[in-house]
Measured scan of single mutants.
Amino acid sequence: QAPETKIVDKSRVACDGGEGALGHPRVWLQIPEDTGWVECPYCDCKYVLKGSKADAL
């Protein structure tokens, strides 16, 4: 199944896999201003900063 994409309001987000005990260790991710998105290294969930150029795609 394809990784999930989430639109977020802040450039710093936490990801834990979203499945409680079945998820992964919580990691904090920083969305770079130049790209407007970041992917979780564990679950490949893509976080897109709302209003960024990546959000316009």
Rank of each mutant, 00 (worst) to 15 (best):
Q1P: 12
Q1M: 15
Q1D: 11
A2W: 13
P3T: 12
P3R: 14
P3D: 10
P3C: 15
P3W: 12
E4C: 15
E4L: 15
T5N: 06
T5G: 07
K6F: 13
K6M: 13
I7N: 04
I7A: 08
V8I: 06
V8A: 04
V8L: 01
D9H: 09
D9K: 01
D9I: 07
K10G: 10
S11M: 10
S11Y: 10
R12I: 14
R12P: 15
V13Q: 01
V13K: 00
A14F: 14
A14M: 09
A14Q: 08
A14I: 09
A14K: 07
A14H: 10
A14D: 08
C15A: 00
G17W: 02
G17R: 00
G18M: 13
G18R: 09
E19M: 07
G20M: 04
G20I: 03
G20E: 03
G20S: 06
A21M: 12
A21H: 09
A21R: 09
A21L: 11
L22K: 13
L22I: 05
L22W: 06
L22Q: 11
G23C: 01
G23Y: 07
H24V: 04
H24N: 03
H24I: 02
H24P: 03
P25D: 10
P25E: 12
P25Q: 11
P25V: 10
P25G: 06
R26K: 08
R26T: 10
R26F: 06
R26E: 07
V27N: 01
V27H: 02
W28P: 02
W28M: 07
W28R: 00
L29E: 02
L29H: 03
L29R: 00
Q30N: 10
Q30R: 09
I31L: 01
I31S: 02
P32Q: 06
P32N: 08
E33G: 06
E33N: 05
E33S: 07
E33W: 09
D34E: 10
D34S: 09
D34I: 07
D34V: 05
T35N: 04
T35F: 04
T35Y: 06
T35S: 09
T35P: 10
G36N: 02
G36E: 01
W37L: 06
W37M: 07
V38P: 00
V38N: 03
V38K: 03
V38D: 02
E39R: 15
E39T: 09
P41F: 01
P41Y: 03
P41N: 02
Y42G: 07
Y42K: 14
Y42D: 06
Y42F: 12
Y42A: 11
C43V: 03
C43D: 00
D44L: 15
D44N: 15
D44K: 15
C45G: 15
C45W: 15
C45S: 15
K46F: 07
K46C: 10
K46G: 02
K46Y: 06
Y47D: 08
Y47P: 05
Y47Q: 03
Y47S: 05
V48T: 01
V48C: 07
V48F: 04
L49H: 04
L49N: 07
K50C: 11
K50T: 06
G51L: 03
K53M: 10
K53I: 12
K53A: 09
A54V: 03
A54Q: 05
D55E: 09
D55W: 00
D55R: 00
D55G: 00
A56G: 11
A56I: 14
A56D: 10
L57V: 10
L57F: 14
L57Q: 11
L57K: 05
